[in-house]
Nucleic acid binder design. Structure first.
Length: 140
DNA sequence: TCAGTGACTCCCC
DNA sequence: CGGGGAGCCACTG
């Protein structure tokens, strides 16, 4: 059996997929000018409480990576990356995509948060139960 | 194999 | 409304 820890993951893992590869698969699809929260990404790959791990995966991306890591931020619409030294870089990239930050250094999630289409969810093999639980949790 | 870790989140005061 | 604290869980060495 493949390492789907705790048996809580409801999203089916394809051959050779890990939590990390699934995270990157999701992040790569975030449209320019839109964002997802760490928790949202975690939920989409079937581990709704693994938000911290999403951050860890993105942290270990190489500088040359083409994955749009700047499009992932925390549940308050703020950047968690200042503490690891790339907050300014993330802010700069997001501003270049048209996002505006308020006085609290936050963006309006209601305005910029991305919700994948049903077609996209299917492509990621997110089953109906998981999709339903995500809808409920995030009021999507 | 296993304990330590943390780009999170939520709850409580 | 703000900050402190405690779960959380896949990755890492």
């Amino acid at each position: 059996m493949r390492s789907s820890t705790a048996g809580k993951a409801r999203k089916v893992k394809g051959e050779g997929e890990t939590f990390a590869t699934q995270v990157l698969e999701v992040v790569r699809k975030i449209p320019r000018g839109k964002v997802l929260t760490y928790g949202q990404v975690a939920a989409l790959v079937g581990s709704p409480r693994a938000a911290r791990i999403v951050g860890g995966v993105l942290f270990r991306l190489g500088k040359k990576s083409k994955v749009p890591w700047q499009r992932v931020l925390n549940a308050r619409g703020m950047l968690s990356t200042y503490r690891v030294g790339c907050g300014e870089e993330q802010k700069k990239r997001l501003q270049a995509e048209g996002l505006r930050f308020n006085r609290q250094e936050a963006i309006e999630l209601e305005r910029y948060q991305w919700w994948p289409t049903a077609r996209q969810l299917k492509a990621w093999r997110v089953d109906d139960d998981l999709a339903a639980s995500i809808h409920q949790r995030f009021g999507w």
